[in-house]
């Protein structure tokens, strides 16, 4: 099933679920599970919780499917539910988390800078250090920054898609992205100054 036939089939499943046929929700889950799972994983970075959170998202979607009016694609509608759910999770987590000051080691910082300056591919150990560094920077980002950054940079969504998902204007997404990147760079600088 690809393209238009799949979309038609999807509409039929949605209408059947809206009509009270619970079984028709199964194929919808199957169709969108990977995307939802990826979004949850990238936003929360919790390997062990992806399953439970994805379940909660599909449960919410099932409860709210009556309000889906086909104005946006079902995938976008579902992603909006996922983003909101993860946003709440991040806010709760950030409130509970003890913030700590971090620095990256002088050695790894220099190695990474050299690699970035020569604009070449990073070696395996550099990749690990870089991955950890950016993961930490993302972890420290406010929930709203993390969401736009993840949607754009990790999920590879267009600004138009993000705008539809977050129910804001395209220009607002661009501004938020710019600010989120700027704050991330500032945190990187802070980490480096601390060494």
């Amino acid at each position: 099933m690809q393209g238009v036939p799949q979309a038609t089939q999807e509409v039929e499943w949605i209408r059947r679920v809206q009509g009270g046929e619970r079984e028709a929700f199964g194929p919808l889950v199957e169709l969108h599970e990977r995307r939802v799972r990826s979004l949850v994983f990238h936003l929360l970075r919790r390997h062990d919780e992806v399953d439970d959170i994805a379940q909660e998202i599909f449960f919410k979607a099932f409860k709210g499917i009556g309000s889906y009016n086909f104005q946006s694609s079902f995938g976008t509608w579902l992603a909006r539910i996922a983003v909101n759910h993860c946003y709440d999770y991040l806010r709760r987590e950030q409130k509970a988390r003890v913030s700590y000051y971090w620095q990256f080691s002088e050695e790894s910082a220099r190695a990474l800078e050299r690699a970035a300056e020569r604009q070449a591919d990073f070696a395996v150990d550099e990749q690990i250090a870089l991955r950890d560094l950016v993961e930490k920077l993302l972890e420290q980002a406010p929930a709203a920054d993390r969401i736009v950054l993840v949607l754009k940079e990790l999920e590879d969504r267009s600004v138009e898609e993000i705008a539809e998902m977050l129910k804001v204007r395209v220009s607002t997404v661009k501004v938020r992205l710019h600010r989120a990147r700027k704050r991330m760079l500032e945190r990187l600088k802070k980490g480096r100054l601390g060494r």
Partner: peptide, 29 residues
């Protein structure tokens, strides 16, 4: 240089494999 670092790190994170569904995911749901 900093932006290259961050962007490269973000790409590495994007390439990480997403954990698959555990057995019984659909049944539990």
């Amino acid at each position: 240089r900093d932006w290259r670092l961050i962007r490269a790190g973000l790409r590495l994170l994007a390439r990480e494999p997403v954990p698959g569904a555990s057995p019984g995911f659909a049944a539990r749901l």
